[in-house]
């Protein structure tokens, strides 16, 4: 079994089936003459799913070890959470706290990062972003948002 390509096949099959079923059942497919909104996506989904199936079948017949080098789960979480935090807080808390939280989260991704160091990095980057984006480029944002009551 080739785990890497089997996983790849699963990704392709789920994308292909997900989009394919949605286009087939949720949309008007139409005909080649009058293509509905579902026609082209359906064709693409079938292609993606078939490639997935082909890769999957081949992966079942060969044997290959798969030990990818992956970033530590803490790093992945800290990086992915960072933009989400920004999205959740930029309206409510305002620009400054949002950037600070984002950089703080991202700074914690580094291996063995001490909280104090992360805090210093976050403060410095926030000040830099404030200068560049707010004062320099004139980004229309509220510096401090309604949640803090200002």
């Amino acid at each position: 079994m080739d785990t890497k390509n089997l996983t790849a096949a699963c990704v392709l099959l789920s994308v292909g089936l997900g989009f394919g079923l949605t286009s087939f059942y949720g949309m008007n497919v139409g005909s080649a003459l009058r293509m509905g909104p579902g026609y082209f996506p359906l064709v693409l989904s079938i292609l993606i799913a078939s490639i997935g199936a082909a890769i999957g079948i081949k992966a079942l017949t060969v044997s290959m070890p798969f030990r990818p080098q992956v970033a530590p789960i803490r790093a992945v979480a800290a990086i992915i959470v960072a933009p989400i935090l920004f999205g959740l807080t930029v309206r409510g808390l305002g620009f400054v706290p949002a950037v600070a939280l984002t950089t703080l989260s991202a700074a914690m991704a580094a291996k063995g990062q001490r909280p104090l160091a992360a805090l210093i990095i976050a403060v410095a980057i926030t000040a830099f972003c404030l200068a560049v984006f707010y004062y320099g480029l004139g980004l229309p944002v509220r510096l401090v948002g309604p949640w803090i009551g200002v």
């Binding site: 933009p83 989400i84 999205g87 950089t103 991704a109 160091a117 990095i121 980057i125 972003c129």
Partner: peptide, 30 residues
């Protein structure tokens, strides 16, 4: 690098948000 990538992430988040002032885009990015 521990200083550089938080800065890159901050720029990217601000940048993506500034395109449409749409917070949903940040979830798409993540």
């Amino acid at each position: 690098y521990t200083v550089l990538f938080p800065a890159i992430l901050a720029f990217a988040s601000i940048g993506v948000y500034s395109v449409n002032s749409n917070t949903f885009d940040l979830y798409v990015m993540a």
